[in-house]
Amino acid sequence: MILFPSAFAFPVTVKDESGVRFTALSAPRRIISTMPSNTEILYDLGLGSRIVAVSSKCDHPPAAGSLPKVGDLTLNAEKIASLNPDLIVMLYDTQKYQIERLRALSLPVFVINPRNLDQLSESVLLLGRVTGTSASARSLSSRIKRGVAKASSAKKARLSPKALVVLWPSPVITAGKNTFIDDIVSRAGAVNLGSKVPGAYPTVDFEFVVKEDPDFIIFAGKSYKKMQQTLADEKWQALRAVREKKVILIDSDILTRPTPRAVKALELISGFVNE
């Protein structure tokens, strides 16, 4: 039994998910996280006390909200440099040009890019290696895999029901093919209606929604009351799923962020679709 495994893990060189090699000479102690999802993963790995700053959108766990902020859409390079970070965890798909900019300043950028639940457990392992928390990363990763396997096995062997994800009700904005949400919905055993529409987060005509008449509606949001107000509308009442009350409200943060909490979203949707 090794007493301090992290001490032996360094220096470590890891290829990140933008294809760039990153070398950590010792376990990072001054971490900056520029995305809410990455912040959640870092806390899950027990690294909360080593995070020195986060983005202004980072709100979970609540402790993250009180850390110093380095901007959101535009990151403040001066502020980031002044905090002397030894690891800046970023997300490829939404921060490509910010990543380029910070790398040009030789800042220690490490990029992950989980686009679905399988990739999420890989990204967790990668973050574990570069932060010297491989043991926690392995257990977190297998917890994600177990949760996903369990929720997916609930899938009934009948024709897959059609589900509409509502990210925004008016006009309806939904999640398209190959998005993180698409992955969750299809693993839950439903056909994501948005995958029939081109684009990542397409705006769809309500006529399309009426014509497809989904079996289930997954409403992303935080307020039950707001959802009820939307659904009371005549237009929405025309839908079978609304009349039969086959509508579920899922906290948009757990549905849209690639984090371990997304497993909870998968469980909820799977339970709802397969009941």
Partner: peptide
């Protein structure tokens, strides 16, 4: 633009 709502821009 970089100081009014700093650290945001």
């Amino acid at each position: 633009s970089r100081t009014l709502i700093s650290p945001a821009e």
